[in-house]
Nucleic acid binder design. Sequence first.
RNA 1: GCCGGAGUAGCUCAGUGGUAGAGCAAUUCACUCGUAAUGAAUAGGCCAGGGGUUCGACUCCCCUCUCCGGCUCCA
Length: 665
Amino acid sequence: MSGIQPGLSSLPLPRLVRVEQLSIDLEYPDGNVVQHPKGATGLEVASSIGSGLARAAVAIRIDGELRDLNRAIDHSGKFAVVTLADADGLHILRHSSAHVLAQAVLDLYPGSTFAIGPAIEDGFYYDFKVAEPFTPEDLERIQARMEEIIAEDQPFTRDSADMDHALEIFIDHPFKREIIANVDQSEVSEGEDVTLYRNNGFVDLCRGPHLPSTGRIPAVKLLRTSGAYWRGDQARDQLQRVYGTSWPSKKELEDYLARQEEAEKRDHRKLGAELDLFSFPDELGSGLAVWHPKGGMLRKVIEDRSRDIHERYGFEFVYTPHLAKADLWETSGHLGYYSENMYPGLEMDNDQEYRVKPMNCPGHILIYKSRARSYRDLPIRLSELGAVYRYEKSGVVHGLLRARGFTQDDSHVFCTGEQLDAELRMHLDFVIAWLKDAGFSEFEADLSTQPEKSVGAQERWDFSEKTLADVLESSGIPYQVAEGDGAFYGPKIDMHVKDAIGRRWQLSTIQLDFTLPERFELEYTSAANEAEQPYMIHCAKAGSLERFMGVLIEHHAGAFPMWMAPVQATVVPVADRHIDYAETVKQALEGSGLRVEIDDSGDTVGDKIRTAITQKHPAVIVVGDNDVEAETVGLRLYGEEKDTRGVPLAEAVARLTDMAAEPDL
RNA sequence: GCCGGAGUAGCUCAGUGGUAGAGCAAUUCACUCGUAAUGAAUAGGCCAGGGGUUCGACUCCCCUCUCCGGCUCCA
């Protein structure tokens, strides 16, 4: 591949210092001032201000609008050179890479046709309809052809066509014709019905901008293929999608691939097996997990924490069965609109059908309804670690993140309209406290509002949405409004966290529900002695314990904060004669509530330490002759390469106990 | 559910139309060791399950199950 050299991201960008009638001066951070004539093309500008920038420049921004580098700039001088170091530059790089991909595929597979090929986060893809699905060998062939096209450094040129001409150009490409037919005329410039980009005979429908030429792609790699529906619609053609990534330098490509590998190492399914936390035995069925003792301890710690914090926030604990009569699910409406996700009914002798619960709400509602409620009873806050079963489609099951059986840390609050604001504030506090304690520090919320089809009184929607927005606003948590993205039964806040390697996960959800109180005819008696319908808030702070723990495993890469680690310390006796003392040490630690194991295998010290570190135990305590005599230990903490020897036992216990303390409630 | 890939020892993976292999883990023995792998020996398999082709199938074909990567879905 030819083109740009590494290190461009450090290039100094000029600032505009003077605009006169005939010229523009740009001053570089190093004080160098360069002049060039007004009305020059972006390419000329870039050339006139230094060869480094000329090589780095991929586009130009004029008055905020991105343009191809080789199109003339305007005469205002309000422009900025865009390089691959910019987000816009990267986007252009990836979009241009997608064009090269399409060009390569159309070259190599005559008769194939292409659909869309956008830049996406970290890369790009292109969708094709081909006679045979791509194989891994095809991917290599396509990559090789792409590299040829890049080596040929074909210039990208912009062109436009009227509708009829464009339809003619893409006569053999029905997906393109469909796009052309749907072009929104309000979005194209005057005189150009559609814009096209050409390079060396290849032409694609595109708004641009593009790199000046194919040779400006420094590093590109195809990653995988998959099926994808045309326009995301299951009922339409299934196309072959090719994913790839491209970067400003080979180094950055390699770094990206290394990050992907790092993410793979954190995969909770892999760590779950390595750390002996859980498994998904075939014998149970897809999406059904068993928790092994280590994972079970981790889960117990999290469940205990969940109960403690629920109690602190004023929730009461309830228990509801896993089965209920079909009638209940009829009343709740689940059989009407959720039955695809429900396990089939169990027929009983007396003709009674039972269903396994996919949600906990109806059970909690029955508790509410078990007696008449007064406004004096509200708010009622019920919570349960409730196991639910949902028949997820076979292709979507994904370890703990998408299982068929899972446990929600579910709660339902029933309150009056006046109480809604305070309740929602409490929920948001709760959720943030919970997530922070688990080790997350970056949060983003989505506020999803009323969709087109919805149920419930409009005034309730308006009031609730406003309250949710107020609560979010005063919390200071960054959020975005997902207009129309709410459930049909109510608006909601979804809380996302960023993990240690920057991925975004949705965990907590706080949802209003206007339909269940209606369907179950929930009431309370107001101060005015009138029957009122309560507001109902669903909330899961972790989401599901399984999913939460899956995310935790990936976030911490299996090295949990000490308070949740299933084994907090491993005691390693140097030789068999030290086992008695190791036992003493273990008991001392256990006396302070620590979870401790002794490695009394016949392995060498080095081997035992290796095992403990591989298992990511927070502390390794080595005891030998010196320690027995002096009542000391050798202490080595996870992540530290050096140990500390001769630590008095009492001090080690105190230190570790301190380190293992749960965050304050 | 859809498209593609895969399923061989507990794990990671070789392998071939002619009766199955390695490393790690396990077990046993020796070693008793001071901070990331002590040595030797042993054992371990219905090659995911079922059907077919063949003199012969782990290998080729079909079906099922499970997993992986995506798509779609996650009222």
